[in-house]
């Protein structure tokens, strides 16, 4: 298991409730990949982009801290790229020290 940080930008064209629905689907996808989300996802709400993306000016930002086996989230990332509602996403493998600080597994 490894500690990851996942940030997802959901399209700002959606209603807030519909956008928040993505939290649930992402949690399920992580679980089905054999991982687990640690703590409550950080919902930043609607935020203006620094520059327009796909002619959109704003989007909903969510940040997850999660544990998952290496490579297990590849399918989820592919799904993000295909999904129209997800503008961008970023999955970072956290360094062990930082992962431990956030209460994720450092290394097993």
């Amino acid at each position: 298991m490894r500690g990851y940080e996942l940030m997802v930008i959901v399209s700002g064209d959606l209603e807030e409730q519909a956008a928040k629905g993505w939290i649930k689907t992402i949690t399920e996808q992580v679980a089905s990949a054999g991982g687990a989300i640690v703590g409550t996802p950080d919902w930043w709400g609607k935020r203006r982009f620094a520059y327009p993306i796909n002619k959109k000016e704003e989007g909903y930002y969510v940040v997850f801290n999660l544990n998952a086996p290496g490579g297990a989230l590849d399918d989820m990332e592919r799904a993000f790229r295909i999904a129209d509602d997800i503008v961008r996403h970023k999955l970072l493998r956290l360094p062990d020290a930082e992962a431990a600080k956030r209460g994720l597994v450092a290394k097993v």
Partner: peptide, 11 residues
């Protein structure tokens, strides 16, 4: 560079 990709900072 990561922040720029996520539109947190301008290019």
């Amino acid at each position: 560079k990561n922040a720029r990709e996520m539109a947190l900072l301008p290019y």
